[in-house]
Computed example of a mutant assay.
Amino acid sequence: LEIGYGAMFLKMIWNLNIYQTMLVLLTISGMYTITGGLTAVVYTEILHAGVMILGSILLMFFAFNEVGGYEAMTYKYFHSIPSVISKGNWTAKTECYMPRPDALHIFRDPISGDIPWPGLVFGTTTISLFYGCADQIFIQRCLAGKNMSHIKGGCILCGYLKLLPMFLIVMPGMISRILFPDQVACVVPSECLKYCGSRSSCKAIAYPKLVTAVLPNGFQGLMLTTLCAALMSSLTSIFNSTSALFTMNIYTLMRPRATEKELMVTGRFISIIYFTFLIPTGV
């Protein structure tokens, strides 16, 4: 999904071949992960994080300026309806193209809400705890910490950074629907196919469409860098975690006396295998 979304973004901006783009992104990510290991991943992700936050903040300010501010966004969002809702004898259901009345509420009705508040509190919270506290990608970063103070500080920083997506991702996405309702909120299959190549929905183009529409050319380049940074950060984390899981949990059982060098070579070999597997499946 991440590879395809990144390639689609590049195609929208530069009209590049989506399959060639996916191959290039996979190759670059795989090469510096395999050769540099976790050290390369950590250093590049520090740079990526700064670029991502800066680019997203710039886009947020440009987007709010375009729509007229927060109050204007909360009003206009509920009136962002596509102009084409029917074709021939077929008409889309109202709930398919009308914004939900509880769109600005976190805790939604337990019966009619698309994400009922009991599920949010007791279900999503549990999943988030697992993802944030037990996922291999995060655990690996903690194990690579210099000491416990660094590890705790990093976890606290990540917790605060988790507050940003509401303002840097969700709200710009809502603004994109306001500015381009016919494209982002399309419901007629032929219209969606025309705008994004999918017959079901074009929600995935909301963010890249906003980038290409509201940002000057120079800033579009920064956002392109931001997207590539986010994409490659995710890919390198997956590459590195996959090799670490196999090496430390499976290979050490087969060879308990394996040396550090042997484990390193094995980890890189597993990364190469996984990378080779991802190319045909991703492309």
Rank of each mutant, 00 (worst) to 15 (best):
I3K: 06
G4S: 10
G6I: 15
A7R: 00
M8L: 13
L10I: 02
I13L: 14
W14G: 15
N15V: 04
L16F: 15
L26R: 11
L26V: 09
I28E: 05
Y32V: 09
T33M: 06
I34D: 09
E45C: 11
E45D: 11
I46R: 07
I46G: 08
L47F: 14
H48Y: 13
S56Q: 15
M60H: 08
F62C: 01
F64D: 02
F64A: 03
N65R: 02
N65F: 01
G69P: 10
T74I: 02
T74S: 00
T74K: 08
Y77R: 07
Y77H: 11
S80F: 10
S80Y: 11
S86C: 09
W90M: 08
E95H: 05
Y97M: 06
Y97G: 07
R100T: 09
D102F: 03
L104C: 05
H105W: 15
F107H: 13
I111D: 14
D114H: 14
P116T: 14
W117Q: 09
G119S: 10
L120V: 00
T125W: 06
T126H: 09
L129M: 15
F130V: 15
C133N: 04
C133W: 15
A134K: 05
A134R: 07
Q136N: 11
Q136K: 05
A144K: 02
G145P: 04
I151A: 06
I151E: 07
G153Q: 12
C155Y: 10
I156R: 05
G159Q: 02
K162T: 12
M166L: 08
I169G: 11
G173H: 10
L179C: 13
D182Y: 01
D182S: 12
V184M: 03
A185K: 03
A185W: 04
A185Q: 15
V188Y: 00
P189E: 00
L193E: 10
G197F: 01
G197I: 03
G197H: 00
R199I: 00
S201W: 08
C202S: 07
A206Y: 03
P208L: 01
V214Y: 10
L215R: 01
N217Q: 13
N217H: 09
F219L: 09
G221W: 07
T226L: 01
T226S: 01
C228Y: 03
A229F: 06
M232I: 14
S234P: 06
L235C: 13
T236P: 15
S237M: 00
I238C: 05
F239P: 02
T242G: 09
L245A: 14
F246Y: 02
A258V: 03
E260M: 09
E262Y: 11
T266Y: 07
G267A: 10
F269L: 15
F269Q: 10
I273H: 03
I273R: 04
I273Q: 05
I273C: 12
Y274H: 04
F275C: 06
P280Y: 01
P280T: 05
T281L: 12
V283G: 03
